Amino acid sequence: MSASDQTYTTRDIQKRVDNYISQFKEGYFSPLSLMARLTEETGELAREVNHYYGEKPKKKTEEEKSVEDELGDVIFVLTCFANSLDINLSHAFERSMNKIETRDKDRWTRKEQ
């Protein structure tokens, strides 16, 4: 199975990141440092989206990256953040979806069935 065919549960992702981070004495960064890293990665994602879908083309001297790569970096840092605070991403996602599905259930125009 190639890497592009692999699928992971949030538990798998959190465990794989923890296995990686746990091999280093430094461990997880502080929440403030992780927030800064997440902001950096989000900025890099925004830059790539702007290059591909916006009005700002990439300079010839800029390294070729992809939106997919930048999303992967965001997922890694977000997982580090969750792990460092002992937050289960599946539980956090479920809470968020319950809130959104309740609060926004009549906000948008539904498609015809």
Rank of each mutant, 00 (worst) to 15 (best):
D12A: 07
L89A: 07
S4Q: 02
D86M: 10
P31T: 04
T39Y: 08
K65I: 02
E64D: 15
S4K: 08
Y20Q: 11
T102L: 07
S33I: 11
K25F: 11
F24T: 01
N19R: 07
W108Y: 15
K111A: 12
G72S: 10
D12L: 09
L38H: 10
E94M: 04
E44D: 06
S22D: 13
V74H: 08
I21S: 05
E70K: 00
H51N: 05
A46P: 02
L34S: 09
G43K: 02
D5A: 03
S66L: 02
I75E: 09
E68S: 09
I75G: 01
F29I: 00
T79E: 00
K58Q: 13
I21T: 06
N50P: 01
I87E: 01
S84Q: 07
D86Y: 13
Y53Q: 03
R95E: 12
H51L: 10
E64S: 14
D73K: 07
E26C: 10
W108D: 12
G43Q: 02
K111G: 01
E63L: 13
C80I: 00
N83R: 03
R95P: 00
N19C: 07
E40Q: 13
R107Y: 13
L45G: 06
T9N: 06
R47Q: 07
C80L: 00
T109A: 11
V49R: 10
E68R: 04
Y8P: 00
K25W: 07
K56C: 10
A46T: 14
K56S: 15
V17A: 05
V67C: 01
T10C: 02
Y52G: 09
D18M: 12
Q14E: 10
L71K: 08
G72Y: 02
I13L: 15
L32P: 01
H51T: 05
D12R: 04
T79D: 01
S4E: 10
T42R: 03
F93Q: 15
E63K: 14
R37P: 00
E44F: 00
T7W: 12
P57A: 02
E62F: 06
E26H: 14
E112K: 11
G54I: 12
L71N: 03
K25Y: 11
T10W: 15
A82F: 07
N19L: 11
R103I: 09
D86W: 03
K111R: 08
E70H: 00
M97L: 02
D12N: 14
F24E: 12
E112S: 13
E40L: 14
D106P: 03
H91S: 04
K65L: 09
V74L: 08
K15S: 15
T10M: 13
A92I: 07
K15E: 15
E101M: 12
E41F: 07
I75S: 08
L38G: 08
T109D: 08
N50Y: 04
K58L: 05
F29E: 14
D5K: 11
E101N: 12
